[in-house]
């Protein structure tokens, strides 16, 4: 799969297991949602003296279709997922249909953390979150679905760049100031 859009994604690629994880997560939701529809339909059909196999077949078909479409969507999502650590800014863009791109200056990063939800633990995936002081950055600025090695790499690189940038804007002197040589008459 050719998805190397940025140097950062090439260096710390998303795991393809992310597609499976997201598909599984949404499939569970689909099964729950569809069961609300299919259980009454099945009862209705069984009262209309149709063989019991018909509602089961319908349910399986509908769920299979939903899962397949979810998989295609997640594949697409995976392909257009863009993140790049440029020299001055962090750029994250996601969403194939309604794209959302966030650009954060390193100086404004408040927090870098790595977490896993329960499905992430099954699949061995990690989410790298970084946020500025705004609500929308908390929602938009994360890179999820990388393996441990790359999560640590991303985290390390982010923290390193952030502290380097801050040291620069804070004006911490790179070398110690020269001591004055005694000048006659002072």
């Amino acid at each position: 799969m050719d998805v190397t859009q940025s140097p950062t994604r090439e260096k710390y690629p998303l795991s393809t297991r992310k597609i499976l994880k997201k598909t599984l997560g949404y499939s569970v939701m689909w099964v729950i949602a569809l069961s609300f529809v299919m259980v009454p339909v099945s009862i209705f059909l069984s009262e209309a003296s149709v063989s019991w196999i018909v509602p089961i077949l319908i349910s399986i078909t509908v769920v299979a279709l939903a899962v397949f479409l979810t998989y295609l969507y997640e594949l697409w999502y995976f392909k257009v997922y863009f993140y790049d650590l440029t020299p001055d800014f962090i750029v994250i863009r996601k969403g194939p249909i309604t794209p959302r791109e966030i650009t954060i200056p390193y100086e404004r990063v408040q927090d870098v953390y790595v977490d896993q939800d329960i499905l992430d633990r099954f699949f061995g995936l990690y989410d790298v979150h970084l946020s500025s002081a705004t609500i929308s950055s908390g929602m938009a600025a994360h890179i999820d679905g990388v393996v441990k090695e790359h999560a640590d790499g991303l985290k390390g690189e982010l923290l390193q760049t952030v502290s380097a940038k801050i040291a620069k804007t804070r004006g911490i002197a790179p070398t110690s100031a020269p001591t004055p040589t005694p000048i006659a008459g002072v």
Binding site: T98, P99, R100, I102, T103, R108, S132, S137
Partner: peptide, 8 residues
């Protein structure tokens, strides 16, 4: 400026 967003 904390972040810049482009949305569609």
């Amino acid at each position: 400026i904390q972040n810049v967003l482009v949305k569609q």
